[in-house]
Design a protein around this nucleic acid. Structure first.
Lengths: 201, 201
DNA sequence: ATACATTTGAAACGTTCATTTCAAATAAAA
DNA sequence: TTTTATTTGAAATGAACGTTTCAAATGTAT
């Protein structure tokens, strides 16, 4: 196949974009956005400064890509939980249990990247704010749907509307994540989760 | 009265320390620790750089004083709530109601200075970490005490130990504070609070 | 008025920041 | 092999960072 004005193909990106995002996410997660320097990101990714700017434009855009990558990772985890859960209430319980496991496994006590982001950046950058609103919308939709199905199967009481219980679960998760920064005692955290979930029973 | 080696009294600090801490707190609250520059603090307080360093030693120490000042302010609020509350359960309800009011009044969506601090700094600085642990200890003690008394007065169920319910309330407050950054709808927040507190009934 | 310890203001400190520049290296297509 | 668009590495950019310096101003006590 011949073309008169054939486009010459350039040298391509050689790094694994998803791996780089993972490495950058680790730094942002550990230090937060503002305390993370471009040098930190160069060191963590092994990429050259100009390669980072070529591929991600700016520190802020790289951060946003990390947030999206982190969100996608958790969406996949949630999806696999939904598949293996026995029923909607059990799915909610497994999600909370998963978060407790993450907290205990997090020896650096970093908390949740997205919760930290909300605390640090929600009122500072409009694109970050937009991401956070979207993340909230999707999380609320997941919980609301599970509560609605749980109520239909009479596993969850109907004292409150699914929207209200969805908000309650979303807020409880954020509280759990914050609490988990200083407290990593599995028994105490699970008791907290039991109290939270008994409300739905 | 005469003394051979009389100490000459120096010019004294002229500014109101508590006011300056309030002004500095506003900046830290709005931007977080790392995004706040010394120039921001100079602008907000009207003090000269060297006066700030003379009086507070460093940005970090000033931050810690702001945290303590903020904590004291809330302790006073809690104290006045305890006085006017009809009973221990009502005290807890008034505390949550107060937080909802703070969230709604916070047009800058700054969240809680201490929660934000935990998210940004708990794993970065040991003195901040110490402050946060102490703040948690005191808050837990307050809630535990209220729950214990509420149970004794049969206003709160005895399904769980006061310590466990105290932790639940502490975690719920943090969740509420995080949720309130993006969501300032009074009705939704109060519904959230009602669900949280109904657990104790 | 004078002496003096401290605060204050303005400038400067050296460092680090995010970002840009640009020549050299690279890989795909001709 | 040559051409070409892009990536890469290393250095440089100017601005901003937290902190220090020090002479001048200030207020107290003699």
């Amino acid at each position: 196949m011949k073309r008169s004005f054939q486009i010459k193909m350039p040298k391509q990106e050689v790094f694994n974009r998803e791996l780089v995002l993972q490495q950058a996410s680790n730094v942002f997660h550990h230090k937060g956005y503002n305390a993370t320097s471009m040098q930190d990101l160069v060191d963590a990714t092994g990429l050259n400064r100009s390669s980072i700017y070529n591929s991600f434009d700016s520190k802020l855009k790289l951060y946003l890509e990390c947030l999206n990558s982190y969100q996608t990772k958790y969406q996949n985890i949630m999806h696999s939980i939904l598949i293996k859960a026995e029923n909607p209430f059990n799915a909610i319980a497994l999600i909370f249990k998963k978060y407790v496991e993450e907290i205990i496994a997090d020896k650096d006590r970093k908390g949740c990247l997205i919760t930290n982001c909300k605390s640090e950046m929600a009122n500072q950058d409009v694109t970050v704010n937009y991401f956070l609103h979207n993340n909230q919308k999707e999380t609320l939709a997941l919980f609301e749907d599970l509560v609605k199905k749980g109520q239909e199967e009479q596993l969850i009481n109907t004292n409150k509307h699914p929207k209200a219980y969805g908000m309650y679960l979303f807020s409880s998760i954020q509280g759990l994540r914050m609490t988990g920064i200083l407290n990593q005692n599995e028994h105490e955290l699970m008791e907290l989760v039991h109290i939270t979930l008994d409300t739905l029973k």
